[in-house]
């Protein structure tokens, strides 16, 4: 098992290297000049040149790439051109809201999606199944900004139950932070629910018709036990894959929800950085997102072995 994990870790290196090269060059060849945004509208050409030199942006692209790569290998993602702080610091500062948001969205997604998908499969082609299909189609089709706006106007403005936007960290207000997370987490959760419910439904449907399930039932194993021990466990591999990938997508793709709810996470950091061409931050957030994907894929692969003993020896 240890060797398997090591192999997977080594395989991650070329992936991250390709991402690093692509992120650097795409970012740097995109039109737009951060220096002119920093010095302001009315700076002289001399001031522009001075700032460009100060930020090291006057160097040829390959040299800048070499310098950046040297630092990245040592774990230093550089310093933000605008925030006047190291990129790793900016990322760490904004990681808490993104992780909490993604976790709570995923939690709601699992809490609603897996039972819904299972129920739909168990009542295949009945009313519950149709209801689940409609709910999951709605969850996937409604864009998150629309869902967010609807939730804010109903539960924030009309009912006044939750804040319309904003974020408070746990260190600041303790469990009061949950109050700020409910609406954004629900926005993400409904989307996750839809994805997980659909996958659970089809995976469970496939397993339900297998011989071992029929045998278990014929032996008189209680229905709940059949579902939990035989069906769901065997359907787990595709569900876990979707769970993991959708969670990775959540971590890297919460930016719309972060923007609508004014949550200072990594998504809003990346968007602001792109708008003002803050190269080190853009590169850092892309590398970070890629790292998350690689890490979660690794976890998924390891978890396969937990669910399917046949995979342990491979």
């Amino acid at each position: 098992m240890g060797q398997y994990v090591l192999k997977r870790l080594l395989a991650a290196i070329p992936v991250l290297a390709v991402v690093a090269v692509t992120a650097f060059f795409i970012t740097n060849v995109t039109p737009g000049d951060p220096v002119r945004l920093i010095v302001g509208d009315f700076a002289t050409e001399a001031e522009v040149a001075q700032m460009r030199a100060k930020l090291g942006l006057d160097q040829p692209l390959p040299i800048r790439f070499g310098l950046w790569l040297q630092r990245v290998v040592r774990g230093d993602l550089g310093t933000s051109l605008f925030l006047q702080m190291p990129v790793t610091h900016a990322l760490v500062q904004r990681l808490e809201p993104t992780i909490l948001l993604a976790l709570s969205g995923q939690f709601l997604g699992v809490l609603l999606g897996i039972p819904l998908g299972t129920a739909a499969a168990m009542h295949h082609r009945k009313l519950i199944d149709a209801g689940a299909i409609v709910a999951s189609l709605a969850g996937i089709s409604i864009p998150s900004f629309l869902m967010a706006t609807l939730l804010v106007s109903v539960f924030g403005v009309q009912m006044g139950w939750f804040p319309v936007a904003g974020y408070r960290s746990f260190s600041e207000v303790g469990f009061g932070a949950v109050y700020y997370l409910v609406l954004p987490a629900l926005t993400l959760g409904l989307m996750q629910m839809a994805i997980l419910a659909r996958m659970t439904r089809s995976a469970v449907l496939e397993v339900l018709h297998q011989d071992f399930v029929r045998t278990a039932r014929a032996k008189g194993v209680p229905r709940t036990s059949v579902m939990l021990k035989h069906v769901l466990r065997n359907a787990a591999v595709p569900i876990v894959t979707v769970f993991g990938l959708s969670f990775a997508a959540l971590l890297g793709g919460t930016w719309i929800v972060e923007s609508v709810f004014a949550i200072p996470g990594t998504g809003s950091l990346a968007v602001t950085a792109i708008l003002r061409r803050d190269y080190p931050v853009i590169q850092g957030t892309i590398l970070f997102a890629a790292g998350i994907y690689v890490f979660i894929n690794l976890i998924i692969d390891i978890s396969y072995a937990a669910f399917d003993p046949r995979l342990r020896d491979r």
């Binding site: 804010v152 106007s153 403005v157 319309v164 936007a165 923007s259 709810f261 004014a262 200072p264």
Partner: peptide
């Protein structure tokens, strides 16, 4: 409070 979305600022005053 830094709220970039216009609709959220407006909703916040409404609520």
């Amino acid at each position: 409070r830094i709220i970039r979305e216009q609709s959220v600022r407006t909703a916040g005053v409404r609520s």
